[in-house]
């Protein structure tokens, strides 16, 4: 059985060669991190390969669809291989090696069955009808401010200089977005943080997949929402349960190019809410 580290090395080798050259210069934006509202999110839109100000349009607009299609077609080849691998990594981190293997197998099986097969046009149109559901789900637990800060921290993680710094940002993003009101959620939070950290490491291995770090708050939020519902129904939340749920959401978000694209665009839009210019008074004080 493979542990998390071994799987990551395998993954690194596999994706580095295959996709590195293709997008080599696309995600070069340097993260400076001087001010949360200043240069922290400087590269958010450009790292997705889209012009600045393109997120100004409404979520439901034609421009959004166009951007999502563009992004989805870019990530589609990578995601097919990435999703089961990422699910396995998350399962291993949260629940131990056994759960990781099971999560990866299930994800791989579903992919083979064609449930998440890449059929861009029709799939996107179908999914787009469910946008309302997606949005309401997203807003379920976290307040807009919590959400935007968590997304901004994830954006910082995707552009951080080092792996360790990226994981620090993701850890903060997860505890920011998770509802920690019940004991069962507090108990499982460190496992979710660990899962997020391992997923960050996996996604940052390749420049191509690095922007996908921004999907982690969505995965963490959906996971905590599912776990909170299960806890409310009286089910015990064990690391095994959390591993299965988080691996499932990882697979769900990363196996479909359209879901991934929508998550990325939504993340950039939400994170931009905290990227307002820093007041002059604050700058002078520095």
């Amino acid at each position: 059985m493979l542990d998390g580290e071994t799987m990551q090395h395998e993954f690194e080798g596999e994706f580095e060669n295959e996709f590195e050259n293709e997008y080599e210069n696309e995600f070069e934006d340097e993260y400076e991190g001087e001010q949360f509202g200043g240069s922290l999110l400087k590269g958010v839109s450009s790292s997705l390969g889209l012009g600045e100000g393109e997120y100004e349009s409404e979520y439901e607009s034609e421009a959004f669809l166009k951007q999502a299609r563009k992004l989805a077609s870019r990530f589609a080849p990578v995601l097919k291989q990435l999703a089961p691998h990422a699910a396995r990594i998350v399962g291993t981190a949260v629940g131990g090696p056994g759960f990781g293997q099971a999560a990866g197998t299930i994800a791989g099986h579903l992919l083979r069955e064609g449930e998440f097969e890449y059929e861009f046009s029709s799939e996107f149109e179908d999914e787009y009808e469910l946008t309302g559901e997606f949005e309401s789900e997203y807003e379920y637990e976290a307040s807009p401010q919590q959400e935007s800060l968590a997304e901004a921290l994830a954006a910082a993680a995707s552009q951080a200089e080092s792996e360790a710094e990226a994981e620090a940002y993701i850890g903060a993003s997860i505890t920011r977005i998770m509802p920690l009101k019940s004991i069962s959620m507090c108990r499982i939070a460190p496992n979710i943080v660990k899962g997020g950290a391992y997923l960050t490491r996996t996604l940052r291995k390749s420049r191509t997949t690095r922007p996908l770090v921004r999907t982690i708050p969505t995965i963490a939020l959906r996971t905590s929402r599912t776990l909170a519902q299960q806890a409310a129904q009286g089910r015990q939340i064990t690391p095994a349960v959390a591993a299965r749920v988080m691996a499932g959401h990882t697979r769900k978000v990363l196996s479909s190019p359209t879901t991934t694209a929508k998550t990325l665009l939504n993340s950039a839009k939400v994170a931009s809410k905290v990227s307002k210019a820093v007041p002059a008074r604050e700058r002078v004080r520095n």
Partner: peptide, 9 residues
């Protein structure tokens, strides 16, 4: 890196 994830959290 994992330690920093917990410290960041």
């Amino acid at each position: 890196a994992e330690a920093e994830a917990f410290i960041g959290a």
